[in-house]
Amino acid sequence: MTPQTQPELVRQECERWSREGVNITFEIRDNRNGYKAGALREGMKHSYVKQCDYIAIFDADFQPDPDFLHRTVPFLIHNPNLALVQGRWEFVNADQCMMTRLQEMSLGYHFTVEQQVGSSTFAFFGFNGTAGVWRISALNESGGWNDQTTVEDMDIAVRATLRGWKLLYIDDLKVKSELPCSFNALRSQQHRWTCGPANLFRKMAGEIIRSENVSLGKKLYMLYSFFFMRKVVAHILTFCFYCVILPATVLFPEVTVPKWAAFYLPALITLFIAVGKPRSIYLLVFWVLFENAMSMLRTKALVMGLFETGRVQEWVVTEKLGDGLKTKLIAQVHNEPHVRFRDRVHVLELVLGAYLLFCGCYDIIYGKNTLYLYVYLLLQSTAFFVVGFGFVGK
C-alpha cells in the first residue's frame, strides 16, 4: 500500500458507510500548513461542525472500541465545566521487539501515574493529541488549535485550563494504538515530544503566572511539576548526571558520590516506573540503559525548544508499521535495499559511548571500585554503541 492509495481507500470506505445511511464525510487538504494543528483548525471550519457540541480525535493508527463515545460523552453532558475526556493508550505491537517493550514501560508510567495524578488532583494534564473528546465551545473559547509549537495538544490543554476549564482522564478507557518499531521513527517522535513542551514552557510561562482563573496551587503544579521538573529538569538531570558527571568522578579520586545519589535513589525511581507495567519488571535494567542512551537526544531537543534554535518547528510524521499489514510489509522490507550505514549511525551517541567506555576501563585499572561503578559504565557504554549504530528496533 503506497501513501497515495491510502486516502482513496479511506474515501471509498466513507462512501460505503454513507450509502448505508451513516452521516459521514471524508475531508482532506492539499497542504501541510501548521501540520496537525493546521489540519485540525481546517477541519473545524466546515459548516457541519457548527451543528455539533463535541469532537473526538484519533490518530490514524488508533482503534477505539464501539462504545468509546458512550463512555466519554456523558461526562461532558453532565459536567458543563469539563472541556476534555482523555482515554488511555494500549499497544497492539508492544511485544514486537525490545524497543517497543521499553516504550510500553515509559508510557505505562505516564498514563498510570502522571496523567491520573494530574487529572485527580488539579484537573490538569497534557492532552495526548488523540483518543480524547473535546467540548467544541471550550476549544473556541480557548482560541482554537494553535501551531506556535509542535505540541498543539498540550498547548490547547494549557490554554483551556487557564480559562477555567477542567480536564478528565479515565484510566480504564483503553484505546488500541501502535508504537513506532523503527529507531529513526522513535528518534523523530522523541525529538518532537521533548522540544515541543520546552518551547511551549518558554512561551506560556508568563501567561500561566498572569492567569486570574487558576488557583495558586494549580499554577505551581503547572509551572514547577508539569513543565519545569518533568519536561526540563528530568531530561537534563538524566543526561548530565548519569552520562557525564558520574562517569567523570572516576577520573578525580577526590570526588565521591554518595550511594544514595548514585544507586539508591535511582533504584527507587526505577521501581516507581515499573508500576505502570508490572509484567515488564524484569526488563528494568534494559529500560534504564535505553532511557539514558536516549537522554542525549532529549537534552539536545530540550535546548532547541528553550532557545528556539535548530529544528524547533520540525514535524516528522511518526512512521508505524501497521498491525494489519505487518506480515506483508515485513516481507516487502526484506526485498528492499538495506538502509545506508551513514543514515543509521548517530555520531554523538558513539562519542559518548567511547567516553563511557574509557571511564569504565579507567575505573577498573585505577579506581577504588567501592561502588563497582565500572559495571554501570561498561553496560551504559554498550547501550550507547548499540543506539549509535542503530542496532535497535525493527
Rank of each mutant, 00 (worst) to 15 (best):
51 Q>W: 00
51 Q>A: 03
51 Q>E: 10
52 C>W: 01
52 C>R: 01
52 C>Q: 02
55 I>E: 08
55 I>D: 03
55 I>T: 04
56 A>Y: 03
56 A>K: 09
56 A>P: 05
57 I>W: 07
57 I>D: 01
58 F>K: 06
58 F>V: 06
59 D>K: 15
59 D>T: 15
59 D>Q: 11
60 A>E: 12
60 A>M: 11
61 D>M: 08
61 D>G: 07
62 F>Y: 14
62 F>G: 11
62 F>Q: 15
65 D>W: 05
65 D>R: 14
65 D>F: 07
66 P>D: 14
66 P>Y: 09
67 D>Y: 11
68 F>R: 07
68 F>E: 09
69 L>H: 04
69 L>R: 04
70 H>P: 10
70 H>Q: 09
70 H>F: 07
70 H>R: 13
71 R>W: 06
71 R>C: 14
71 R>N: 15
71 R>V: 11
72 T>A: 15
73 V>S: 14
74 P>E: 10
74 P>Y: 08
74 P>A: 08
75 F>R: 03
75 F>T: 01
76 L>T: 03
76 L>M: 09
76 L>Q: 01
76 L>H: 05
77 I>A: 06
77 I>V: 14
77 I>L: 14
77 I>G: 03
77 I>F: 10
78 H>E: 13
78 H>D: 13
78 H>V: 03
79 N>I: 02
79 N>R: 05
79 N>W: 02
80 P>K: 09
80 P>N: 10
81 N>A: 03
81 N>S: 15
81 N>K: 12
82 L>Y: 05
82 L>H: 07
82 L>V: 05
83 A>V: 06
83 A>Q: 05
84 L>C: 01
85 V>G: 03
85 V>N: 03
85 V>I: 11
86 Q>S: 04
86 Q>Y: 05
87 G>F: 09
87 G>S: 15
87 G>Y: 10
88 R>L: 10
88 R>A: 12
88 R>S: 06
89 W>Y: 14
89 W>E: 12
90 E>K: 10
91 F>T: 07
91 F>S: 12
92 V>S: 12
92 V>M: 11
